[in-house]
Write a protein that binds this DNA or RNA. Structure first.
Lengths: 205, 205
DNA sequence: AGCTTTGTTAACCATTTGGTTAATTTATGT
DNA sequence: ACATAAATTAACCAAATGGTTAACAAAGCT
């Protein structure tokens, strides 16, 4: 095979470093020198591999935004019943965010500060098709009399709100509730089942 | 009477401009020149009135963070029943965020990028005492058999999640759901009652 | 081996940006 | 009216920052 580059190792170091710095500080707050330092390479290498700051950022943003709605498409196609689908999505989503706490705030924050970025990236690639499937599943559950009538969009919004928001607002929540890191983690662990049951409780007939 | 300054009008222009720019771009993304331009004053005036960027930012941040949990203390002391308190808080909170869409994302985002800022500001001033009152109200409602047992913190988190998150994630939601500005506003208007009923539905016995 | 391409570095450059200064204008008190 | 203090401006400055260059080292190819 023979890779064209020594090993594309440098590129990975850059991406890892850039990911850390961008996720933590955002586009405007990130410093190219910081990324270079963290990657333990010369700053010029950043431009050698990724032209400029904006393009490096775009690479990270695309990669990151892509993680935001993982394998939910397949999950919606599974033969789980509606409630178990909700349980499964909630649980795996909170797990994912636990593993990548900066992810939602990063994507949302940068999309707000740079509105065109979302369209430029989300649309060209994988537009979350799972929303349509989820909507259909909700409508079907309503029609079959399983759950109360509700606008599917609200249900979807409620679900993601309760999954993602606590991680974004973590510093604030810690202050206003007075809890510490450890207890915060316990709460988030509980939410993997609690949020789903909270939702189901609210919509089940 | 006799104000010491021409009218402290300039100071207000600066604060208005700074508020706009900081809320939209964040501390790192804001430019002093942009603030000066928007305030229609000379850049030096920013430093004349507010020493430096960090202090100007801190002024705005304090003011903004202070709006985040408004009059809920008093509301908790009112003679409304528990469910009506929830309805009232949800409704007025969503209304407030509708009027200040950037507010939650700004505070949360800056607290994440600059962790010490929260402690420096939240604690010294008004620590939200309403959380304690809300907790007590929840516990009382559980004990009196009005609602199902639930950790008060989760309930509080769920409530604010569903109120604030949609506004923060607006650009993303618009893309993944395919809705436009107008329909988004309709949805948010609906949520003023929908979110409260969703919560009540879930916890009522 | 010898030539070419790819990878890497240190030094440098131009622009942006937060901040300052000194001079000027505007208001205020007496 | 006059002296004093507050407000405002244009020009300037130094540091930070994104980006470039030119020389050099390492791989790959024939």
């Amino acid at each position: 095979m023979s890779k064209s580059k020594k090993d594309n190792n440098t590129e990975q170091q850059i991406l890892n470093a850039a990911r850390q710095v961008f996720l933590e500080k955002g586009l405007a707050g990130a410093r190219m020198q910081d990324i270079a330092d963290k990657a333990e390479i010369n700053k010029a290498m950043l431009h050698y591999y990724f032209k400029n700051k904006d393009l490096l950022f775009e690479t990270i943003f695309k990669e990151t935004a892509g993680k935001l709605f993982p394998h939910f498409d397949k999950l919606m196609d599974s033969d789980l019943n509606f409630f178990d689908k909700i349980r499964s999505i909630v649980s795996s989503y909170i797990e994912m965010v636990s593993q990548n706490p900066y992810l939602p705030l990063f994507v949302i924050s940068e999309m707000n500060k740079n509105p065109e970025i979302g369209l430029k990236n989300f649309f060209e690639k994988q537009r979350p098709g799972f929303v349509k499937k989820f909507k259909e599943a909700i409508e079907e559950s309503i029609n079959s009399g399983l759950i109360l009538s509700i606008n599917p969009l609200h249900l979807i919004i409620n679900m993601f709100s309760m999954c993602a928001f606590p991680f974004m607002a973590k510093p604030m929540l810690k202050i206003i509730t007075g809890i510490e890191e450890e207890q915060f983690n316990i709460l988030m662990e509980q939410r993997k089942v609690l949020v789903a049951e909270f939702i189901i409780n609210s919509i089940k007939k």
